[in-house]
């Protein structure tokens, strides 16, 4: 497995390690107020997350990360399908409540939209990206 070590990768690595060092310094030399501890822990999590994403990115060739026209079309196609799925699921929930009074609250519609939208967009994006689907 090749890990790229170009300028961009090294820069982000420097930033992520600096964030972690800064957080440890705040923890070590700062006061013990809960806000400061919370900030430090948040910074550590953010730094580690950034480092993990960086490692994942560094193992991929540069051309695999370009958001080219095919990727854009795949995203748009997945977004369009996800939009209709969200609309259909909310409509079904809404009319089910109107007809059978199943007790659907407004907040349930928010959750339905969020869950259906996120999951369907991710799955469709994967599907359109990996499968031999002619996008055009």
């Amino acid at each position: 497995m090749n890990i790229r070590d170009d300028k961009k990768i090294m820069f982000v690595m420097g930033v992520s390690l600096s964030v972690i060092v800064l957080a440890i310094a705040i923890l070590a030399f700062g006061t013990t107020s809960s806000a400061q501890v919370f900030l430090s822990l948040g910074l550590i999590v953010a730094g580690l997350l950034m480092f993990a994403i960086l490692l994942h990115t560094a193992t991929k060739p540069e051309t695999e990360l370009v958001a080219d026209e095919r990727v854009t079309r795949v995203n748009e196609k997945a977004g369009n399908s996800a939009f209709w799925l969200v609309l259909i699921s909310i409509t079904i929930l809404f009319w089910s409540d109107r007809v059978w009074s199943i007790g659907v609250e407004l907040v349930d519609l928010y959750y339905a939209a969020m869950v259906v939208g996120t999951i369907s967009w991710s799955v469709l994006r994967w599907y359109y990206n990996k499968k031999d689907v002619v996008v055009g």
Binding site: T63, E64, D68, E69, R70
Partner: peptide
Amino acid sequence: EELAKKVGVRRETIVFLEKGKYNPSLKL
């Protein structure tokens, strides 16, 4: 990989193009 780099797309896109599974834009 080299062709992808030259035209500024992902290698995957070149794979799909070669298979005839993707209709490119006029620019690509």
